[in-house]
């Protein structure tokens, strides 16, 4: 198979776009498409300060690389969750990030060490709750969201960017649709706007790339990323949903992309508007971050409990 743009051998064929490209043209395509999505969804401009949540995985490092190439002012944020999993998951992740930074000049990384700052690794913290034992993901998610928002506010960032790809988004969408979770559906999208009460704007510049494209970009760019999953991701529902969507994609090219894009269209046409019951947020009386709860926010309640035990 030949590259659509030159005569060189293609390294990847994107069946949903009927587009096969060679290495150089594929890298160029990813970078240019990202710039287009950032503009199309009005994510941020060259004047904004962007905080990229980097995990050491393929998506977030690829995103940081692309934003760096495009000349955005993008700093990294690494949240050390303290997860070991028998192979030093968190430690390896940070090493990959440092390696990435050593070959690019002028990158700045903020590191938040959860065990050191809050007193325990997230998986240990999860044991202190009734529903989290052995399944730290919801507590981990809560913790990451809290820290991202805190660091972004304290550091004066305009926007937090995450490396979510189309497979991530389509899998979450499938999960939310199967349960008709209107509240989640209303908020899902490439951009989560800032709220007046202190939630920083969040964006997903890679939300239209298939997972194999972000992986290919990292491979072809020589980005060394953690291939091993977080040990708690095994058996996660998201992975199951991704497998189902991939089966659909195999039989009908573009099925995943269509699912997500037609959802965004339907949303734009207002089908979830009636359900948009934006709740009022008040500052947590301990940390000051916005919360729906009166008094302490869920994050503060959780970590107070962890430290008590």
């Amino acid at each position: 198979m030949k590259c659509r743009k030159c005569d060189a051998k293609a390294v990847i064929n994107m069946r949903q776009h009927r587009l096969a490209l060679c290495r150089d043209h594929f890298i160029e395509w990813i970078v240019e498409s990202t710039a287009r999505f950032i503009e199309k969804y009005d994510m941020f401009t060259l004047d904004d300060r962007v905080l990229v949540a980097v995990s050491g995985g393929k998506d977030s490092l690829a995103l940081w690389d692309v934003l760096y190439k495009l000349g955005y002012h993008a700093d990294g944020l690494y949240i050390n969750l303290g997860i070991d999993g028998g192979f030093g998951y968190s430690k390896t992740s940070l090493q990959k990030i440092e390696q990435f930074m050593s070959t690019r000049s002028d990158l700045h990384l903020e590191v938040v060490d959860v065990p050191a700052v809050y007193g325990a690794p997230v998986n240990v913290a999860a044991e202190a709750t009734s529903h989290g034992a052995g399944k730290p993901c919801s507590i981990c998610g809560l913790t990451k969201r809290h820290i991202m928002n805190r660091v972004a506010r304290e550091g004066g960032y305009d926007v937090v960017a995450t490396g979510h790809n189309l497979d991530d988004e389509a899998a979450v969408l499938l999960g939310n649709t199967l349960r008709w979770q209107i509240g989640y559906l209303t908020r899902q999208g490439p951009v989560l706007p800032a709220s007046e009460d202190g939630l920083v704007r969040k964006v997903k510049p890679f939300c239209r790339f298939y997972e194999r494209e972000t992986a290919a970009y990292s491979l072809l760019s020589g980005i060394d990323y953690v291939e091993d999953e977080c040990p708690y991701a095994v058996g996660a529902r998201t992975i199951y949903h991704k497998e189902i969507l991939n089966q659909m994609e195999e039989h009908s090219r573009g099925a995943k992309l269509q699912f997500y894009l037609t959802f965004l269209q339907a949303k734009e046409q207002g089908i979830f508007q009636a359900a948009d019951d934006s709740v009022e947020l008040t500052p947590c009386s301990k940390c000051g971050q916005p919360t729906t709860a009166a008094g302490y926010c869920a994050f503060c309640r959780l970590w107070d409990k962890v430290r008590e035990d």
Binding site: M1, A10, V11, I12, N13, A20, R23, Y210, E211, R212, A215, A216, L219, L220, K242, E243, N246, Q247, E249, E250
Partner: peptide, 15 residues
């Protein structure tokens, strides 16, 4: 699933 993997021969990505 062909969607879930990338084939590499001798370190080179192939279609």
């Amino acid at each position: 699933s062909p969607e879930a993997v990338l084939p590499v021969i001798n370190g080179e990505l192939v279609t």
